[in-house]
Nucleic acid binder design. Structure first.
Lengths: 179, 179
DNA sequence: CTGTAATTTCAGTAAAAACAGAAATTACGT
DNA sequence: ACGTAATTTCTGTTTTTACTGAAATTACAG
């Protein structure tokens, strides 16, 4: 499988971006490849296309499966596993947010709650105590809101985003404008 | 400067989280420390408290300054620079999103646009072309919306988030409920 | 059941990032 | 202008993460 120039560009950039957000580069590259691919790909095809070791592909796919970003499928007459990802950015975005919530946000909430419940909290200044509390409140509000939003189907979500300006005016009690 | 148990817990966890989101661990720790601190701190105090090299603190502070998360202040009778961060989570969140937008999202938009304008796009399948386009659209909508939201002051923002459910109903044309 | 294809696990290697400590520079007080 | 405090820059080391290739395991066809 030879990559076209644009696909290569896309995949390489996606890998870079993944790295900056704490995602392994090849994991991100493989996901980008599957996203652009027209058919599900076998692990060996990924190896060939991206020039990485078979074991690397195996582990990366395992990670993508854990994130539920990738699914295993089968092709008639081919014994090998094939892998595919959703072609909907919205769907993918949801899955990523959901994963991050479970892996990173949830533990943070636990830690903050433990901090605030600990008897050792007495030793902290009022200011520090308040800021820990506010951090907890903030994250909770944000995740509750994210849950709400991501429960929606893509079309609704799209509308919500596009209506950003109107929402602002609505909340502030100002007349709606289209500026 | 000796850390209290809770502060230490908070700072260490913040460092871990930073790492998972692509932020250097000590950078995140220093920011957490300044966030909890009651007064601006000098670099040497940070060195002592976190047990890291002076040069490490210097570079980390430079990075935090670049993100505009930290400001330099001065204390009467002390020649050294002192550093402080906003005590408002909302404010901090804004700054982080803004920074990410400039550093990561903007370059991605450039790449995607270049891909879609390139003559080599002809070589791509229709499906791939469409998905690149949809990716661009998605990121653009999301950032436009984020710009809108983050322009608001904290109170307004808070209300918007808390009204998530109502917004949904509003958009879908359903009667408002408090469920 | 036997042989082969497919996949995973594991151990070692390579690459990258983080960090410390010394040296150099800058800023400041006298 | 000189000396010292403060900060930054630079170089080498350590640590961590990513990755490869071989070995082991599993799944499957005949």
């Amino acid at each position: 499988m030879e990559l076209t120039p644009i696909s290569e560009r896309f995949i390489l950039h996606w890998g870079e971006m993944g790295a900056r957000w704490g995602v392994n580069r090849t994991v991100a590259q493989i996901h980008a490849l599957l996203y652009l691919a027209e058919q599900p790909l076998a692990a060996d095809e990924i190896v060939e296309t991206l020039s990485v070791a078979r074991s690397n592909v195996s582990n990366s796919l395992k990670e993508l499966l854990a994130w539920r970003l990738v699914k295993v499928t089968h092709v008639l007459g081919d014994r090998r596993d094939h892998f595919e990802t959703s072609k909907s950015v919205w769907e993918l975005f949801k899955l990523i947010v959901e994963g991050r919530k479970q892996r990173e946000v949830a533990p943070t909430l636990s830690v903050l709650k433990e901090c605030l419940e600990s008897p050792e909290l007495e030793e902290e200044s009022n200011g520090a105590r308040q800021r820990i509390q506010e951090t907890l409140d903030f994250i909770q509000i944000l995740t509750t809101w994210a849950d709400e939003m991501l429960r929606q189907d893509p079309e609704t979500l799209m509308k919500v985003l596009k209506l950003g300006a109107k929402v602002r005016n609505f909340v502030r009690g100002e007349p709606e404008t289209d500026a």
